[in-house]
Design a protein around this nucleic acid. Sequence first.
RNA 1: GGUCUCAUCGUCUAGUGGCCUAGGACACUUGGUUCUCAUCCAAGAGAUCGCGGGUUCGACUCCCGCUGAGACCGCCA
Length: 486
Amino acid sequence: MENEEIRVRFAPSPTGKFHIGSARTALFNYLFAKKMGGKFILRIEDTDKERSSEEYTQDIINSLLWLGIGWDEGPQVGGEYGPYFQTQRLGSYKKFADKLLEDKKAYKCFCTAEELEAERTAQHAAKQAPKYSGKCRNLTPEQVAENEKAGKPFAIRFITQEKKVDFDDLIKGHISYDAGLIGDFTIVRSDGMPLFTFAVVVDDYEMKISHVLRGEEHLPNAAKHILIAEAMQIMPPQFGHMPLILNTDKTKMSKRKDPVSVTDDYRAKGYLPDALVNFIALLGWNNTDDQEIYSMKELIQEFQIERVGKSPSIFDREKLLWMNGLYIRHLTVGELASQAQNFITDKELEDKIMERPDFYLQAVALVQDRLKLLSEVQEMIKFFFFPQEYDAEVLIAKKSDKTRTALALKLAEEELAKLTKFSHDETESTLRAAAQVNELQAGEILWSVRAALSGSSASPGVFELLEVFGKDESLKRIATARTKLA
RNA sequence: GGUCUCAUCGUCUAGUGGCCUAGGACACUUGGUUCUCAUCCAAGAGAUCGCGGGUUCGACUCCCGCUGAGACCGCCA
C-alpha cells in the first residue's frame, strides 16, 4: 500500500441548494475521517456548467460550516492536492483521457445528441435496456480523421469490457455487476468537459482518496469507477454506499415536494445545527445501546461504519422537531436569547428588545420550555412588550363565570397594589390568600390574572409573569382586563 | 424492459440461533404535578418480526423461492 492514510471526500455539485441528504453524506464522511484520524476533503464538482452556480457553492460551504462539519482540505482552506474545484483541474482529466485514447481504452464518438436520443427511445419502445450501440467504436482512423477535419464535435467514450465487476462495499457487502449491460459510456463531453463518472476517478486518485462514502444511488457508478480505474491501472478506493433518506411516501426526497434545503428549510426555520446533526446521524446509524442524544464529539467517538444500516429511512419531521425542542431547552438563556434574536422580524419588537435587553432575557427564559423552533420566539414573547388584543372570555377560568372573574380581578388589583416586594413568592401568597378569604377557587383568580397579563389562554405561569412584568405593568394590565368585563 | 439494493410497532431503530410472551425513542392515549400551555414524571396501546418453504432440538436471527418497495440505466451528479 503506497498510501495508508485515511482520506475521504465529500464531493457535491453546486447545482441546487444544499440538500439534507447531502448533509448526511457529508456528516458520515466527516465522522468516519475524524474517528479514524484521517482527513476530510471537500471537493466541488462543478463540471456541469449549465447548472452549476457560485450561489450554490456558497450555500454548500455555509451549510457545512453551520452544521459544524469542517474540512481539512478544500475551498478556502486549500491543501496539497488542490485545486478542489473540478473546473480548475481540467488539465488532469485531459491527460488521463488522452492516455485512455492512446491505449485504445476509449474512443472518439461523433454521434449527435439527436442520434443518441433516437437510439434510446427506440430501445425504450422495444423494451430493451437503454445502452449505447457502440457505433463509433469501430470507426477507422481514417474516418475519425475525416470527421475531425470536417470539424465535427466529438465526445470520448470509454470501452466497457464485457465482464463481471465485483467489489466489497463497506456497507452493502459483496456487490457484483455485469459490465456487459452497461455499454460504452461517455467520459468527456464534446465541449471538452469531463463527466462526473470519469472526473471522480481521476480526482479520487490524485487526491489519494482511500474511502468513498456516498449515497446508494451511486452504487451502479461504482462499477464504472472500478472499470475506469482498471483501465488507468490504478487502485480504486474502498466504497461504502449509504442507504437513501426517504420522504414519507417512501420515494427519494425531492426538491419539488419536500423541505430539503438545509439553509431554507432548516436553518431559516429555526432548527439548531446540533439538533439537525444529531437527528441525521441517527438516520441509518446507531450505537446498539439506547442513547439517542449525541454531541458531535460523541458521534466522532462512537461512529463505526460497520454500524451503518442497509435499509433506507424515512425522514420523520416530528421527531426532529422534538429533538430540536430538547436542544433548545439545553441552551443557556443567554445563548437562546441571542440566537433567537436572529429570528425577530418585527421591527417594532426588535426596537423594544434593544431598549430592554434584560426584560427580553427574562421573557425568553419563561418561554424556553415551550419552544420547538427558534422562530417561535417572536410570537411567544410579543405580549411581553405589547399588550395583545383579546376577548373578555379568555379571562374567565373554566369553572368560573363573569361575575366571579370580575371579583377575582378586582381583588387581585387591590391586594397586589399593597405589595412592596413584587416577587414570585410574595404575589403567590397574596393571591392565594385573597382567593381563600373571598371563597374563590385559587384557580379562578390565578387564571384570570394570568390571562390579563398575557392576553392568552396559554402562557407561562402567572407568578413568573407578575415578577417579570413588575408591579406597575401588572396592575395596568389587570385594570385593562377589568374594563373588558365591565 | 434490464440491473442492483432493501424488507422488525405509523416512524427512527435494538436484536448476529435459545436471554424475545421482541427492547428503546418520536408520535398517540391515560394519569400525576399544576393557574393554562409547555416541561417533567408514571402508565398504556401499538410489530402474528413482508409471505412460503427449508436447515435445526430450537429461527426475527442461517439458506432458497416469492412478493413488495426503492434506486440506477444521460454529452446530470
